[in-house]
């Protein structure tokens, strides 16, 4: 029971980590929260649906992130860079508006009904671990989540671009004096963050449903995670995603009647105890 609970929450947290860490990365560099992130995830899911029909799941898992990375590049050049001198709130509102537009375009093309895609044969069915039968696809999700955490950590810790990202996130002023070009970094981070949203979208296909409301649900969950994690802290976002996944899954098991509210209760408790979140992000003025 407990093992199943933890496995399920890890599966959900895997998706959330991919999305929330992308949000936190952009925030760290640009002080901007991308309210359109949910729409990018939705775009990833619908593109995944279409591409998988033609090429199958595996190629979709490769192609869609590349397409989303291109969208991220467009976002960087057409939105974040031209609006650099505007207040963070204004830029956040613009991303909110763009997210609504993108969501509406997707609904216009695909219509209102929910879609689903099947997991590839090798990932369907169940596997028995320690006497417990568990869906292979969720094991795959957990591995993907773990993989993205590890690659994120390796990138941030052991590469020069990762070091620069950490430097800018901690102190943009000092980083600028060190001659770090935050525009180039932002291009990298924004496209990476969009690509991760694409991966999460494709992965969500066989796991959750692909429907018109998925962008709002996901962005709200991610915003809660980012706030709980301490805005801009990547480690905080990962821990918060795990926590969120756990209370969400545990809530649906133990408190099925009010499960939808459990994440909000978690949020309120964290805000009461630590208004800045649990991680040590940079506090902004």
């Amino acid at each position: 029971m407990i093992a199943l609970l933890i496995a399920n929450s890890l599966a959900l947290a895997s998706l959330l980590i991919m999305l929330a860490s992308g949000l936190a990365l952009i925030y760290g560099l640009r002080d901007v929260i991308n309210f359109g992130h949910g729409a990018l995830y939705m775009l990833g899911a619908y593109l995944g649906y279409t591409v998988a029909k033609v090429t199958g799941f595996w190629l979709a898992l490769l192609i869609v992130p590349i397409l989303l990375a291109l969208v991220g590049i467009v976002l960087e050049f057409l939105v974040l860079r031209p609006l650099k001198s505007r207040s963070h709130i204004e830029v956040a509102l613009v991303t909110l508006g763009l997210g609504i537009i993108l969501g509406q375009i997707i609904i216009f093309i695909y219509g209102g009904e929910a879609r689903s895609i099947d997991a590839p044969a090798i990932l369907s069915g169940s596997v028995t671990v320690l006497g417990l039968s568990y869906p292979v696809y969720r094991v795959f999700l957990i591995l993907m989540g773990l993989g993205s955490c590890v690659s994120l950590a390796v990138w941030l810790r052991f590469t020069s671009s990762g070091l620069f990202v950490r430097a800018v996130s901690q102190d943009p002023g000092v980083a600028r004096m060190m001659g770090i070009n935050s525009d180039q970094l932002s291009l990298l981070v924004t496209s990476l963050s969009a690509a991760f949203a694409g991966i999460a979208g494709v992965l969500a296909g066989p796991y959750l449903s692909i429907d018109p409301g998925m962008d709002i649900v996901m962005i709200v969950d991610c915003l809660i995670i980012v706030v709980i994690g301490g805005t801009g802290s990547i480690a905080g976002a990962i821990i918060a995603a795990l926590l969120f996944g756990f209370v969400q899954v545990a809530g649906s098991v133990f408190l099925p009647n009010v499960a939808a509210l459990v994440p909000y209760v978690l949020l309120m408790i964290v805000l009461l105890i630590a208004p800045g979140g649990i991680g040590r992000g940079r506090v902004l003025n």
Binding site: D31, I33, I89, A92, I224, V227, L284
Partner: peptide, 9 residues
């Protein structure tokens, strides 16, 4: 919280 977090919350 800060204004951006306020908006999210």
């Amino acid at each position: 919280t800060n204004p951006l977090a306020f908006m999210m919350l």
